[in-house]
Design a protein around this nucleic acid. Structure first.
Lengths: 154, 154
DNA sequence: GACGGGTTACTCGGATAATTATTGTCCGAGTAGCTCGGG
DNA sequence: CCCGAGCTACTCGGACAATAATTATCCGAGTAACCCGTC
């Protein structure tokens, strides 16, 4: 799994406490990570319409909708790609005992088991929203982040 | 996710129909995959004690226990590594608003959400055994594989 | 015919390269705010 | 004092390298079967 997912999630949680667009550089400074690489992740979030990018002098990134309506799954799929992690290469159709393609209407058993597991994983990520994450963050920390983002900052 | 997981699972299902040790080269031929790389995966299974490797002229690999007692999770963890896919780098302890380490007794919220999702994924993989997979394979195919493995082969 | 030593051929196992995905970086296009001159 | 054109500085966006993980490969160590000579 891409490590940028963690950065993106933290950024989304931080943006919960933002009232104006926050530049990528400031988010990078807040988390002490590579500014340019974080920009890449934020671009991915922008492409997925999770955040809105506004250019210009007072530009930056801001959430497009209520944090309660952005799931963790949305962020993960935006950064890591929506495709499944396990991809069936149809081994059953290869080799000396290859099953003819006409008999392969349903996906193979292994593919199904892996797909079911990933579905369970997705459902778990879908039940948690960015708002849920922000709610469980310590109140003091949220206050600090809010003032740091909206105020002058360090 | 490592693509070798698929190979390993197919091999385990095939070994269900084997009565004697099957060489890695034969399994590779059966699935039409790289023999040397498949050997690597089988070594991983051997290290995890899922299969038993027997050397010598009539050597090969064979399952160590009943297919019903080998879960898909066992195979996935043996090949892809037991560690979690998402690793928390403790971003909350970095940057200008770093949370002091003494306040970090519990894992951070994001880490928890991801860990819960992975647990759901693991549970789904744990409920399916190799025997379950073999049971859902077409009876004719199973018969063919059995005779191909135990007989002379093509 | 039965047994035992030696040979052989086949097996796995770990150490070793090639390829692909991830991580990290850079510079150009674009836009909003600010400045300054005019009315 | 109010307005607007021009400028400036700051922003994002995509194209470009460095690194790590995956994929693929090879050759040596070890072992069990087989063969053959002997009893």
């Amino acid at each position: 799994m891409s490590g940028g997912v963690e950065w993106a999630l933290h950024c989304c949680v931080a943006l919960t406490s933002a009232e104006a667009p926050v530049p990528a550089a400031r988010l990078a400074h807040l988390h002490d990570v590579s500014p340019t690489y974080l920009a890449k992740q934020l671009q991915a979030l922008s492409r997925a319409d999770l955040v809105r990018s506004v250019q210009g002098k007072a530009g930056g990134y801001i959430l497009t909708r209520s944090p309660a309506q952005i799931t963790v799954l949305d962020v993960v799929e935006a950064v890591d790609g929506p495709g499944p992690a396990f991809i069936c290469t149809e081994i059953r159709q290869r080799g000396p005992l290859a099953v003819p393609a006409q008999s392969c209407t349903a996906p193979c058993v292994i593919s199904r088991a892996m797909a079911d597991a990933e579905t369970a994983w997705r459902n778990a990520l879908r039940t948690t929203s960015i708002a849920d994450l922000a709610r469980d963050v310590d109140a003091d920390a949220r206050s600090d982040i809010s003032s740091w983002l909206n105020g002058a900052g360090a």
